[in-house]
Amino acid sequence: MAEQEAKNHSWGMAIDLDRCTGCEACVAACHAENNLPVSTPDSAAKGRTFHWIRVDRYYEGEFPDVKVKYMPVLCQQCDDAPCEPVCPVHATYQNAEGLNAQVYNRCVGTRYCANNCPYTVRFFNWFEPEWPEPLQLQHNPDVSIRPAGVIEKCTFCVQRIKRAKLDAMHDGRPLADGDVKPACVQSCPAEAMVFGDLNDPSSKVAALARSGRATRLMEELGTRPKVFYLERGA
């Protein structure tokens, strides 16, 4: 994969697992921000929930010495994404800023990308999405509604990235670190999530990514993900 040019952004995220309390505020915020279809107990039983970011729980030990570890898993925006080469219609590709973009209009719904994602972060619209009254009034106008038959996934809130860039351009200033906050990052009460430009060596996320506590999920697969998980004594 070609490395990003120095002047291009390379959006990345750092998630501090020692701070994460598993409250799932990020999940709720993502649902609200990105017009996700509602997941019900019925759809959960069928294995058809939509959580662009989900919190995986890992239990260690036996009662009463049980430890729970929480891990928010979202699209890792891999630099070498396994989902990209397998789409027969080029509906998913990596854009110039390192985001793995999903083009809803182009997707024909073969679901090969969803199979090939080792993090299982891609979701398929089995039906036309419906929202119980009055949730359809809550939709974010910056985010499109996906029709039945297309794949969707976390976009690092690309609409917020675009909005921040437009605002910066309008104000005549360069984009500063911390200007862009995806919904999950913004809503985390423990401030466990940091988002920024990995290509900017002075950004907070780049510093955290360089720290000794940073690892990436299943990086041995060669996907080069851009979400860094920070944990003690990694």
């Binding site: 994969m1 070609a2 990209e84 080029h90 590709y93 990596q94 854009n95």
Partner: peptide, 12 residues
């Protein structure tokens, strides 16, 4: 044709 259509792949 692959080269003529300006396909964006981000390096793939």
């Amino acid at each position: 044709t692959q080269h003529n259509y300006p396909l964006v792949t981000g390096g793939m």
